[in-house]
């Protein structure tokens, strides 16, 4: 990393943030589908779902946040792809700037944009009856997990954005990610699911993250789920980061 890493990253971050604030639709569309799902599950299906809680919004909200993030990171692949196509990447790379700044600016933009979407979702959740007695520390922990989850998935999106040959390909990879929360404890407890499905649901990253956030919001002691969640996020982050950087070097060599 070069001496200019931080100043270059902040200049490029400023640029991408201008992009998202000038087309705020990316934040709103990221929030709107998860909100629709939340409305559907709370007001249409919720009455018939036995999640073992008297407030289904409380149960549902963590999973909805993850769905928002899983869909929101596709915009990073999209923006990266557009930068590659437009030649602005080459302009940056022929300049004496820190090369890793170019990717980090996109990744940090993703974190900020997704957190804004999550804030919108929490506000809608509050209107729908979401209540928590969580203190500042618990909120910070929830924020930390979500940032880590976003970072991990965004680096996956970077791989897709660098490797895609079409704009559709750059964005489509996130579709399966959006479905992961459906086969997890996000909507119903996993113990209601048949054997193999239950096994999958209990051993995929989303369940441990959802459980951790549910516990933090409910002020319950957080069990081993938190460590499993952190391990998943860090593991995906490290592997995706390595692959993204390898793809990046290949692109530039």
């Amino acid at each position: 990393m070069s001496t200019h890493f931080f100043s270059d990253t902040s200049v490029l971050l400023g640029r991408s943030l201008r992009h998202i604030f000038r087309s705020a639709d990316t934040i709103i569309t990221t929030a709107i589908t998860p909100i629709a799902i939340m409305l559907l599950f709370v007001y249409v299906l919720g009455g018939a779902i036995k999640a073992g809680t008297d407030n289904y919004v409380n149960y549902l909200l963590p999973g909805i946040m993850l769905i928002a993030i899983a869909s929101g990171i596709a915009y990073t692949a999209f923006r990266l792809f557009m930068d590659l196509k437009s030649g602005i990447f080459e302009r940056f790379h022929s300049m004496p700037i820190s090369r890793s700044s170019v990717l980090w600016a996109h990744v940090l933009t993703s974190v900020i944009a997704n957190l804004l979407s999550v804030v919108i979702i929490v506000l809608v959740g509050l209107m729908m009856g979401f209540r928590t007695s969580a203190g500042p520390l618990a909120w910070l922990s929830v924020g930390g997990i979500l940032v880590l989850f976003t970072l991990a998935l965004t680096w996956v999106a970077v791989i897709a954005g660098l490797g895609a040959s079409t704009i559709e390909g750059a964005s489509a990879f996130s579709y399966p990610l959006i479905f992961l929360p459906f086969v997890s404890s996000a909507f119903v407890p996993t113990k209601t699911m048949p054997g193999p499905v239950r096994w999958f649901a209990e051993n995929q990253p989303v369940t441990s993250i959802v459980n951790s956030i549910q516990d933090l919001f409910a002020q319950r002691p957080v069990g081993s789920d938190l460590w499993i969640a952190l391990a998943w996020c860090l593991g995906i982050l490290v592997i995706a980061y390595a692959f993204a950087n390898a793809a990046y070097r290949r692109k530039m060599a």
């Binding site: 070069s2 992009h19 437009s86 602005i88 080459e90 004496p96």
Partner: peptide, 19 residues
Amino acid sequence: RQVRESISLTGQFAAVDEI
């Protein structure tokens, strides 16, 4: 790095930020 400090590239397609 020294090369990048000495040069400037104007690529085949105007590399400007549309937004």
